[in-house]
């Protein structure tokens, strides 16, 4: 069974125009699907629709179950959309990380992951020992235990641990983009929906992010990647779709 299945997904804009032509695709475990297309063709809207952040018609399933069956917050915890423009809550970067680990859905995922194996919530069962920390970090483990993993991820994308104490609004776009990705990888969702995640990064930092993404899919994750960079799609993606 596909991890993520999308059938006839459509979004109608307020102007009564379709945001993109109806989309159907499947995403397996360990796969990255690339979405290419010109600016304004609806790639970001498609990702937001898959995450259920905007009204749409069609069918989106995670491991054969709809968001209604899973519960919307928990579904989004598993099919996590990362905005192209890094967004943070007021406060420090650390406050922002703590916040996303404190949601009720994080606690549900944490307890469910110990009970449900073989489903999206049981990603930890498919990962190596090192990644079990990720699952445990989803709310049940206090921040002091999760912090080392956050610092490790920050280092992997070329950010120093001191960034944790900086106000989120003081970050540059590039720093913010990487910090937002760290926040997503800390949650370690089964499916990542990445909206041009390296658009503000130089080649060196882009390579680090790509390595992290490869690591994520190697350990049982999957991702849909919106990119303008055909070479990047070729490097990372098992398959590529054009959105029109």
């Amino acid at each position: 069974m596909a991890r993520l299945s999308v059938r006839n997904l459509e979004v109608v804009l307020p102007t009564n125009r379709a945001a993109f032509s109806a989309q159907s695709f499947e995403l397996g475990v360990g796969e990255i699907l690339g979405l290419l297309g010109p600016s304004g063709c609806g790639k970001s809207t498609l990702l937001r629709a898959v995450a259920g952040l905007i009204p749409s018609t069609g069918d989106v399933r995670l491991d054969g179950r709809t968001a209604d069956e899973i519960g919307w917050p928990r579904f989004r915890r598993h099919v996590l959309y990362v905005h192209q423009r890094p967004l943070f809550l007021p406060g420090t970067v650390e406050d922002g990380l703590l916040r996303v680990l404190s949601y009720r859905s994080a606690r549900e995922v944490s307890s469910a992951s110990t009970m449900e194996t073989g489903t999206a919530t049981g990603m930890a069962t498919e990962t190596e020992a090192g990644d079990v920390r990720l699952t445990r970090a989803r709310g049940s483990v206090p921040w002091p235990d999760t912090r080392p993993r956050a610092i490790e991820l920050l280092a992997q994308v070329g950010l120093d641990a001191s960034i944790l104490s900086r106000p989120a609004d003081s970050l540059s776009v590039g720093e913010g983009q990487r910090a937002a990705l760290v926040r997503a990888f800390l949650i370690a969702p089964p499916v990542l929906l990445l909206d041009e995640p390296t658009s503000a990064l130089d080649v060196g930092h882009r390579d680090r992010v790509e390595a992290l993404l490869n690591d994520h899919v190697r350990h049982g994750g999957a991702a849909v990647l919106v990119t303008h960079d055909a070479a990047q799609a070729e490097r990372l993606c098992a398959s590529v779709r054009s959105v029109v």
């Binding site: 928990r74 967004l87 943070f88 809550l89 996303v100 949601y103």
Partner: peptide, 13 residues
């Protein structure tokens, strides 16, 4: 709205 959507996207109710 963007910040709220970010929270919802990360699993906030």
């Amino acid at each position: 709205r963007a910040r709220i959507e970010m929270e919802l996207a990360h699993g906030a109710s």
